[in-house]
Amino acid sequence: MTNKKPIDRQAMANRIAMEFQDGWVVNLGIGIPTLCSNFVHPDKEIVYQAENGVVNYGPMAVDGEEDLWLVNAGGQYVLPQPGMATMDHSDSFALIRAGYVDVTVLGAYEVAANGDFANWRVTGRKGGGIGGAMDLAVSAKNVYVIMDHTTRDGQARLVERCALPLTAVGVVKLIATNLGLIEVTLSGFVLKEIAPDYSPEEVQALTGAPLAIAPGLREFQVAS
C-alpha cells in the first residue's frame, strides 16, 4: 500500500467552490457537490439554487433547527435566509433551461476528453437516476465535475470517450478529482493542479486519455 494522501472530499468541493464568482447562481448536484456550500466566501455573495424550486437558500440545517418543508436537491434540510424565493418545478426548470444558472457542479462516473460526461446509469443496471442533470448540463453557463480520479478498482474515470450512456455532450469545463484539478480544453485534458504527494506521470498513468501538463502546474490549492 502506498502512503500517498489523495485529496479528501471536502477539499475537492472547496477547490471547485473557489472558482465561484461574486453573484453567481450555483446549482449543486447530489453527493460531494453539496459540500461546496460549506465553503465560506469572505467577499463574494453566492446564490444557491436547487431544482426543487428554491433560490437563495441558506446553509445546511443542524439537528433541531430543520424546517420540514425546506430541502435542497439532495433532500437535505437547509435554512431559509432573507431574500430566499420558492417556486414550482416548471418555474425552477424554466430558470435552469433559460440559462440563469452560472454553474452546475455535478458528480460523474466518467468524463471524456471532449467534455462529454456520464453520470446516470452504471454498467449492468437497467434503471438510472437522471434527475435534473441533463437539463442542467445543457443549460448552465459552466459545468464542473467533482469525482474520484479512478473507480474503486483503479479504472480511469477520465477517458478518451465515455463507455457509459451520456448525460450531455461536450459540456464539462473543469474537473476536481482526488488527484488534481483538470481543465477540459479543445485539445483535451490539461492538468492545472496536482495532489501534493503525486507526480504528473503518476496522475497520467491513472488517466485514460492524454493529460497535458499546464505550464504553470501547481500544487492543489486549498482554502486558506
Binding site: 431544482e51 418545478h89 416548471s90 425552477s92 426548470f93 435552469i96 433551461r97 434503471g127 438510472g128 437522471i130 434527475g131 435534473g132 442533470a133 441533463m134 437539463d135
Partner: peptide, 15 residues
C-alpha cells in the same frame, strides 16, 4: 414498466 426522462422534461411535459 418505466419511462425515464430528465426532471425538467418531466416537469414541462406535465406543465
Amino acid at each position: 414498466d418505466a419511462e425515464l426522462m430528465p426532471q425538467g422534461t418531466l416537469a414541462e411535459r406535465i406543465r
